[in-house]
């Protein structure tokens, strides 16, 4: 029988391996599609699903993304979109933390809230979604609320943590734990037509500057709620930040916050 590398080489098309071949290889060599994806990337080839990443993300960078682990805290408005985008981007290991189930009031904005997912755990629904997009992504759903007690276990081994939380107190806890564990944190928050994005590296206190003066656990979203487009916009900006951190490219929103006003279509950058 041909070796795995011979099997893949003989089925290479334009330096790419199709999903069908990736699956056939997994069955034939009794490996997971994730292991096959690693083999393809190690050989310097590309799983065909990433072909439209073209010159934006090189094969070497695609391999870097595949070897990365990102933890998303919260699978609601922001987290649902971030997880979708990270899975499509090709981040190899994703962890999602959320103890909630989908409710009717999530339907106006949360990507994975549908009639059929009402009452189901968000983390379980994300698992199905990611498996349907890319089974080569190793996904760990955690149906727990993020707390001081479980924080180290949940974040261990992550290169980046994404803030998809909806309370200020828990955000400040997340910020403090990320600083202790020396993990970059990509913050996002939304309120009506408005949102904000910032990236905090170890040693920085961006979230404290943003929130320490807040005496209440919720911001103005308690009055204004959130429509469909604000979480999608802010989550996409967060995902771009995660991608750049993992690849070591571009300019990050460090020591500054980007404030979005989708009503006036204004972007303001504040130095913190």
């Amino acid at each position: 029988m041909a070796s795995l590398s011979e099997f893949l080489l003989s089925r290479l098309e334009d330096e790419m391996i199709s999903w069908q071949v990736q699956q056939e290889a997994a069955n034939r060599f009794k490996l997971t599609t994730s292991q096959i994806e690693e083999e393809i990337l190690n050989a310097g080839f590309l799983p065909a699903r990433y072909q439209r990443n073209c010159k934006t993300i090189s094969v070497a960078e695609q391999q870097l993304l595949f070897r990365s682990r990102v933890t998303v805290i919260g699978c609601g408005g922001l987290g649902g979109y971030v997880l979708e985008e990270l899975a499509r981007l090709g981040v190899g290991q994703l962890v999602a933390v959320d103890h909630d189930v989908f409710e009717e009031h999530n339907l106006n904005r949360q990507l994975l809230a549908t009639i059929s997912t009402l009452g189901r755990f968000k983390a379980d629904v994300v698992a199905e979604r990611i498996a349907s997009i890319n089974p080569a992504v190793e996904f760990v759903p955690i149906k727990e609320a993020f707390a001081r007690e479980n924080s180290e276990r949940l974040l261990a081994g992550s290169q980046v943590v994404v803030d998809g939380l909806d309370t200020i107190g828990t955000r400040l806890l997340l910020s403090s734990v990320c600083r202790e564990l020396a993990i970059p944190l990509v913050h996002g928050a939304i309120c009506g037509w408005f949102g904000q994005v910032a990236t905090q590296f170890p040693g920085e206190d961006t979230l404290e500057k943003l929130y320490l003066r807040c005496t209440e656990d919720r911001g103005m979203e308690k009055i204004y709620g959130n429509p469909s487009f604000t979480p999608a916009t802010v989550a996409s900006l967060q995902t771009a930040e995660v991608c750049k951190i993992l690849l070591g490219r571009g300019s990050l929103l460090r020591k500054r916050v980007l404030c979005l006003n989708l009503l006036a279509m204004e972007l303001d950058e504040l130095q913190l």
């Binding site: 939380l165 996002g188 928050a189 309120c191 911001g219 103005m220 959130n226």
Partner: peptide
Amino acid sequence: LSIFPPVGGG
């Protein structure tokens, strides 16, 4: 003087 309100939803 610029004033920003708390934004905390997710």
